Amino acid sequence: SILCKYFANSRLMIFSINNCIILCTRRDLPMSIEIRAEKAVEIANEAGIFALGFFQRVGSLEIEDKGPQDFVSEADKAVETFVRAEISKHFPQDGIVGEEHAPLASQSGYTWVIDPIDGTTNFINAIPAWTVVIALVKDGITEAGVIYDPIHREMFSAVRGAGAILNQNPLICDANTSLTRGTIGTGFSNRVSTKGIQKLLNIIFDRGGMYHRNASGALSLAYVAAGRLLGYVEEHMNAWDCLAGQLIVNESGGRVEIQDADEMITHGGRVVVGSSGVFDQLKAMADEAFEG
Rank of each mutant, 00 (worst) to 15 (best):
P103L: 02
R160T: 09
E42Q: 08
F7A: 07
A244F: 12
S1A: 06
K39D: 09
I22M: 12
K138V: 03
N122G: 09
I134P: 02
L12W: 04
A226K: 14
G161I: 10
P92Y: 02
K283P: 03
E234I: 14
T186A: 06
A44R: 01
Q168D: 11
V233K: 02
G292V: 03
S189Q: 11
A37V: 04
V256F: 12
I265F: 00
S108D: 13
V192Y: 03
N238I: 09
A44Y: 09
D76R: 07
D174E: 05
D70T: 14
A144Y: 01
D65Q: 14
Y148G: 03
E234V: 13
L29N: 13
H267T: 04
D241Y: 03
L23F: 14
N176W: 01
D65E: 15
H212F: 15
L136F: 03
L104I: 14
D28A: 15
E257K: 15
E100C: 04
S157E: 10
W240S: 09
L29F: 05
E38H: 13
F279Q: 02
V72M: 15
L229A: 12
V146Y: 04
I87G: 01
A222Y: 04
I184K: 04
G231I: 12
P116S: 15
D260H: 14
L29Y: 05
E64G: 01
G161W: 12
K283N: 10
E263K: 10
I141Q: 13
D262K: 07
R181Q: 15
R255I: 05
Y6N: 09
E80P: 10
R191H: 12
G187Y: 11
G253R: 03
G268K: 02
E38L: 07
E100D: 08
A261F: 03
D287L: 01
I258F: 08
E64P: 00
G209S: 06
G217D: 15
Q259M: 05
K5G: 01
N202I: 01
I63A: 00
F156A: 08
D115K: 05
L12H: 10
G182W: 03
G274A: 11
Y110R: 07
F156G: 02
F290K: 06
T120V: 10
Q69G: 11
S10D: 14
A8Q: 06
P92I: 02
A40T: 10
V271N: 11
V272Y: 05
G292P: 00
K66P: 07
N214R: 09
F205I: 05
A144V: 12
G59A: 04
G145K: 02
T111F: 02
N169A: 14
S276G: 04
Q107T: 07
Y6E: 08
E74Y: 04
L23E: 14
L247K: 05
A162H: 00
C4H: 04
G277Q: 01
G185S: 11
R207L: 06
I265V: 13
L229Q: 09
F279Y: 14
E288Q: 15
F50N: 11
E46F: 01
I151M: 15
A75F: 09
S157V: 03
N45I: 12
L243Q: 11
I204K: 00
A239C: 13
L29S: 13
